[in-house]
Amino acid sequence: MVSLEGEAQGTTYHIKYRDEKQRNLKKEIDSVLTTIDKCLSTYRADSEISRFNRSTRHRFESPYFYPVLKKSEEVFRATNGAFDPTVMPLVEAYGFGPKKIQLSQPINIDSLVQLVGFQKVSFDAVSIRKLAKNIRLDFNGIAQGYSVDVVSEFLESKGISRYMVEIGGEVRTKGKKGEGQVWTIGIENPLQPGKMLTTMKLVNRAMTTAGNYRNHYESNGQTFSHIINPKTGAMEQSSVLSVTVFAPDAITADGYDTAFFVMGLDATKRFLSTRKDLDVYIVYTGEDGQPRTFVTEGLKKEQ
């Protein structure tokens, strides 16, 4: 087993894989993650996404922009806009963007919502253009999952078929960890960050989590979480504490975990009745104020 760890995209990563040649691929993996950052990071003024946000159209330069746009469109349409990568103006207004600001006055949500809507961009496999000015993209709700997939595919290109790739808590596995051993991944307790609520077997699948317990701050006596409803412009104050999604790949799981958080428990349950490719582990607050969990049938036999 080869074990690698490092820092990328403002977080940490941990990668394990079985390789008879015992190759250390850290240098190549770091290079891949840096290249993705140069394309998709809103924290870099020179990234492709930042340059598009300052212009009206953009011709893709890297192979990473289009796949994320395409998946974003898929999740946007499937969830009726609960996931929307044009949410950047709201993200910034609430102080979660690259420029950290503290709120000193109420946000004019009505005017900001006019700047949001994925239907206001048009794209194909070669380029993207804005159909309304001031539209800006933010892939932070999906780019980390995509990065996990890209690294996983890189390992497979090297002939590695047994691995676990984790970046910032987003995970994808393939094959067995050892003889008779499957990869086991912990789900964090949203009420006690750092402590595990449960562990799940993850077999040839990806798992990502969205929660309001890590990224939040208080201003003028109010607590703001980073999950924003792109349709209303409001911070979500729902009973849901965390949503962990299991999907064939990490980009899919990452897009839907944010959407399900916005949609809430009941709407997510209805949605999942038609999507057998997805499973969820949702932690929410019951009417008695105590934490409760909702687990799809496909996961119950995995525990």
Rank of each mutant, 00 (worst) to 15 (best):
A93E: 01
Y94P: 05
F96S: 04
K99Y: 04
K99R: 07
K100R: 13
I101K: 07
Q105W: 00
N108Q: 15
V113G: 09
L115M: 13
F118H: 06
K120S: 09
V121G: 04
S122K: 03
S122W: 06
S122E: 14
S127G: 13
S127K: 09
I128E: 06
L131Y: 09
N134S: 03
N134Q: 03
I135M: 04
R136K: 12
L137P: 13
F139S: 12
F139Q: 10
G141T: 04
G141A: 03
I142Q: 02
Y146H: 03
D149C: 11
D149Y: 11
D149P: 11
V151H: 06
S152R: 00
S152G: 08
S157Q: 08
S157L: 07
S157T: 05
K158N: 10
I160Y: 00
I160G: 01
M164I: 09
I167G: 08
G168W: 05
E170I: 07
E170V: 08
V171K: 14
T173K: 13
K174H: 12
K174T: 11
K174S: 15
G175L: 04
K177C: 05
E179A: 15
G180N: 02
I187Y: 04
P190L: 03
P190G: 07
L191T: 11
P193G: 14
P193A: 13
G194M: 14
M200E: 09
K201M: 10
L202E: 10
V203D: 11
T209R: 07
T209L: 04
A210P: 11
G211Y: 01
Y213D: 00
R214I: 07
H216Q: 12
Y217C: 03
G221M: 09
T223W: 07
S225K: 11
I227P: 02
I228R: 03
P230F: 00
P230V: 00
P230L: 02
P230C: 00
